[in-house]
């Protein structure tokens, strides 16, 4: 086959065709993967909420509240038999060492932390990344941010540890200021 000449119409037609075909192929791929991605995100959220708050029987992710003055934060109230047993707060902090850390913090009705999970982070592997380990996270459980939190930071990862501690305290303040656990 002879090579197509580089005339203006030829170039225009070819590039437009390629762009159209590519957009169609990507649209199709997106159509297939989008529902899977959305479902994954939902499952991950439900999973993360149920890991940090006491057992509940409502649908916290469907009752999520976004505080008007903190649009990046989400509150998930947990109820059992209609009674508030706690709430999960999804919060992110830019104070990490490697970038943003996204947390899910659970609080019981007595104002103590019932659980903490790290949803996303970019901390240094082996150092700051240890904020995801049980040994660090479990220290928070049972403490009330209303008093001072007593947490042993991770050796050589002070910034990451401090970022998480500050975020947990902020999560409580936001929860309080939007009416606490109801």
């Amino acid at each position: 086959m002879k090579k197509l000449e580089s005339t203006l119409p030829n170039m225009f037609i070819v590039l437009t065709l390629i762009a159209l075909i590519s957009a169609a192929a990507l649209g199709a791929t997106y159509g297939v993967t989008e529902p899977i991605l959305a479902e994954q995100a939902r499952q991950r959220r439900i999973q993360a909420v149920s890991e940090v708050v006491p057992a509940f029987d409502n649908q916290p992710t469907d009752e999520a509240i976004t505080p008007p003055d903190n649009p990046s934060v989400q509150l998930f109230p947990a109820r059992r038999a209609g009674e508030a047993v706690g709430a999960a707060v999804q919060i992110s902090t830019g104070a990490g060492y490697g970038g943003t850390i996204e947390l899910m913090v659970g609080f019981g009705s007595d104002g103590t932390v019932t659980g903490l999970s790290v949803l996303r982070h970019q901390e240094t592997p082996g150092l700051g990344a240890r904020i995801t380990q049980e040994g660090f996270r479990s220290q928070f459980v049972g403490q009330a941010p209303a008093d001072e939190l007593q947490i042993d930071g991770i050796t050589a990862a002070t910034i990451s540890s401090q970022a998480v501690i500050a975020a947990v305290e902020r999560a409580w303040q936001i929860l309080e200021s939007t009416g606490g656990i109801r």
């Binding site: 002879k2 170039m11 590519s22």
Partner: peptide, 14 residues
């Protein structure tokens, strides 16, 4: 053979 030489690079990039 369908891609004119002058727009080769943008076509490849897409």
């Amino acid at each position: 053979d369908l891609i004119p030489d002058k727009v080769r690079i943008p076509a490849f990039i897409v």
